[in-house]
């Protein structure tokens, strides 16, 4: 199971993500600078968190127009798996790989805290080894995590079961519509989520609840 992390100017969770991927997969992780136009031969491409381009224009907007993004779109079209966490989720919506948009938190505050997530859809490689309906702890750290989609798009997302994770137990930190914390595309091979499972994978982090999603995707893609 090979993975690659894309690095942009202003990425700051890239090393956390690489460490998590290496620890859980037991494999070295490739890194790709955003000006590249081709991807290495990997099963999983990850867009990490951070503040690419200082969030200028809109969060993730400039990064979503980077040279590497065409290669990521082509890979996603061919069914390769793509994960975007936090700023990576913002890039995926800006690039049109996921529906909707991530807007300023309803509170207007940057939130850095733990929330509870409910696993909604276990029909994707990212989630199939997770327990459907389980509620688990996960950190968030963002200013623009307020997911929005118009009524028709939202009906499609909900109708197709594209909601992977929802904020649970009243812990929605940003005003996100329908408590949406993470969604996939219709095919289920592209996942974007605001919370940071890569920051809860070792006892030193205070828990290992973030491991389940990575273990699911690695197990599924290794078997594919």
């Amino acid at each position: 199971m090979k993975s690659a992390v894309i690095i942009f100017p202003g990425s700051n969770r890239d090393r956390d993500m690489i460490k998590a991927l290496e620890t859980i997969s037991g494999q070295p992780v490739a890194t790709v600078w955003h000006t590249e136009t081709t991807l290495p031969d990997v099963d999983l491409v990850v867009l990490p968190g951070g503040f690419s381009y200082g969030d200028y224009l809109r969060s993730g907007a400039i990064a979503a127009r980077s040279p590497i993004m065409q290669a990521i779109k082509d890979a996603a079209d061919k069914g390769r798996h793509v994960l975007g966490v936090c700023n990576g989720f913002q890039m995926l919506t800006e690039a049109g790989l996921l529906p909707g948009a991530l807007m300023r938190n309803a509170s207007l505050h940057f939130v850095c805290k733990e929330v509870m997530l409910k696993t909604e859809n276990t029909n994707t490689a990212f989630t199939s080894k997770m327990e459907k309906g389980a509620v688990w702890r996960c950190p968030v750290a963002h200013h623009d995590g307020n997911f929005f989609a118009d009524a028709d798009t939202l009906a499609q997302i909900e109708g197709n079961g594209q909601v992977a994770f929802r904020y649970a137990n009243g812990t929605n930190p940003n005003g996100s519509i329908n408590d949406i914390a993470g969604i996939t595309n219709a095919k289920g091979n592209v996942l974007g989520m605001m919370p940071h499972p890569e920051n809860l994978i070792e006892d030193l982090h205070g828990g290992v609840e973030g491991r389940a999603m990575f273990e699911s995707v690695f197990t599924n893609l290794a078997a594919a």
Partner: peptide, 9 residues
Amino acid sequence: EKLLANTVI
């Protein structure tokens, strides 16, 4: 269309 506006919102 390509950059200045996010036409979703």
